[in-house]
């Protein structure tokens, strides 16, 4: 199990801030799963499926989480990503990455916002087309609702 958690932690950290986690963060990630196994466990077949594909690559995490952000907000994947975010913001040097805005000031932020929003909408369409049927097939799972 330890290897799976390590992989998750690494992929999720890259997805969130584009950096690998340090050994301290990997240790805390593992510690959370050992202390609170229920909070990290998949609750249903689709929940487990989302977790499995999200571990492959940060891009797969993005696709899985884009879908989860709409149809499975309380899924195990979301819980693990929130845990990763919380660990990143507590530790050094990752907190500095989270506290530093992109260059470009107001204009850059607005342009970035448009880019991020557009990418999200496109990915939501793609992920719904790809993961929606799987979700219907594997119906169920914590905090999830099937797309209509």
């Amino acid at each position: 199990m330890s290897a799976v958690w390590e992989r998750e932690c690494r992929v999720y950290s890259r997805f969130l801030i584009g950096q690998d986690p340090g050994p301290y963060m990997e240790r805390k990630y593992k510690e959370f799963h050992e202390q609170r196994p229920a909070a990290g466990a998949a609750e249903g077949a689709f929940d487990g499926f989302l977790l499995t594909i999200s571990r492959w690559h940060p891009w797969m995490t993005r696709i899985a989480d884009t879908y989860a952000s709409r149809f499975a907000r309380a899924s195990a994947l979301r819980r693990k990503l929130v845990l990763t975010m919380a660990l990143l913001e507590c530790g050094s040097p990752s907190f500095e990455r989270l506290d530093t805005p992109d260059p470009g000031g107001l204009a850059g932020t607005l342009l970035n916002g448009v880019y991020q929003g557009t990418r999200y909408i496109l990915l939501l369409a793609v992920s719904t087309a790809v993961l929606g049927p799987v979700h219907l097939l594997l119906r169920g799972g914590a905090g999830s609702r099937s797309p209509r």
Binding site: I17, R62, D65, V82, D99, P101, N112, G113, L123
Partner: peptide, 15 residues
């Protein structure tokens, strides 16, 4: 209302 990668990126600039 986004994936957490997008939320994190937006948040850095919104903070």
């Amino acid at each position: 209302p986004f994936d957490l990668g997008t939320s994190t990126s937006l948040f850095r600039n919104l903070h």
